[in-house]
Write a protein that binds this DNA or RNA. Structure first.
Lengths: 186, 186
DNA sequence: TTTAGTGTACAGTTTTAACTTTACGTACTT
DNA sequence: AAGTACGTAAAGTTAAAACTGTACACTAAA
């Protein structure tokens, strides 16, 4: 957190301003997919820092408690946006960003969405089965049957959507999405 | 909100349970992309109801204030997940779901992300320009130059990511994504 | 013009989430 | 074995968001 040491105050000011703006937009971006603004900033600082940082350094730079850094860092670890790295000569944990944002993006959806979507699909399947049971049981009640049919149709359509979504998530996971939308060269 | 009228209590119970489960998973799904659980439920109820509903009906069914329904409905309207429809013989506003979830998904990202991403790109470009100015100004200070270069590289990489993201969003907007990952037939 | 019905802005309340302080368990050092 | 450094759990506090009730503006009918 001190890679600006040895520069003139004016230089520090200029660089800091430029960095600050980027860090801010990183924060806003992460906010878009449900990560706290402050954790976004946390990532931003780490992103610009040369080399890994400790909880204490983060705490000092962010002006927040060490506990907050601990939880924030853990969130980012869970999302695979940062790594814990080993450093000789210190007992402190060291953390560094995973700088591949395309990968971050993919991991995020994979981690956060896959499980939920799969859970939802199970629920839908269960309800669909119940509807079908009812269709057998009350097959002579035409008014009810009509209702059951529209419900069935709606659930089926939802399942189709989730299936699509799952395939999208898979294309993130296996990188096929980058065949469809290539990363920028350079 | 009363399309179950005329059924036996047992039938109502069964259907309600099946629906409730689906509505719940709809809520959870929408929660994934930052929509309140309760608004998700709101959508879920509307999704299953035959025909459009009024704020008062929603309020009664959801057991929440009419004000909340008003704001919730407005949120869903902004995201183009529901439509306001016209009904003869009533002065109440009528709302109905847009049942195409693939479209909903696309709209959501288009609406929620595009603007933010574009804003971020502008910020990054500004910072990049400042870094480049500094590179000219302090071209004789090799330590500083090194720092500036790594910063520049990081910002450039970010911009690449945002460009990619924008292209992804565009593929949602123009439907090209469905050529890559087709909707399920059936 | 009045009157009744409707949606929403606004202020107030409650619930939820973020953050801090304190305290503790673990692991390393001596 | 005792002390120290470190990360985090737990409880407490503060800030933010969700939600409610009231009041008001607008429209349409009488």
């Amino acid at each position: 957190m001190n890679d600006l040491e040895g520069l003139t105050p004016e230089q520090i000011d200029k660089i800091s301003k430029a960095r600050e703006r980027v860090i801010d937009s990183i924060g806003k971006n992460m906010d878009l997919y449900g990560i706290t603004l402050s954790i976004g900033h946390l990532y931003g600082y780490m992103y610009f820092n040369q080399g890994p940082v400790t909880l204490d350094e983060l705490s000092k730079t962010m002006g927040m408690s060490k506990t907050s850094m601990s939880t924030g860092v853990r969130t980012l670890l869970d999302l695979k946006m940062i790594d814990k790295v080993w450093g000789r000569g210190t007992r402190k944990d060291l953390f560094t960003t995973v700088p591949d944002w395309h990968q971050n993006f993919s991991d995020y959806f994979s981690i956060k969405w896959r499980k939920a979507v799969e859970g939802n699909m199970i629920s839908l399947a269960k309800s669909l089965a119940e509807i079908n049971d009812m269709k057998k049981e009350y097959s002579d009640d035409s008014k009810l049957m009509q209702l059951l049919n529209t419900d069935e149709e709606k659930i089926t359509e939802s399942i189709n959507y989730y299936r699509w979504l799952l395939k999208l998530i898979e294309s993130f996971e296996n990188g096929k999405i980058f065949e469809f939308i290539p990363k920028e060269e350079s």
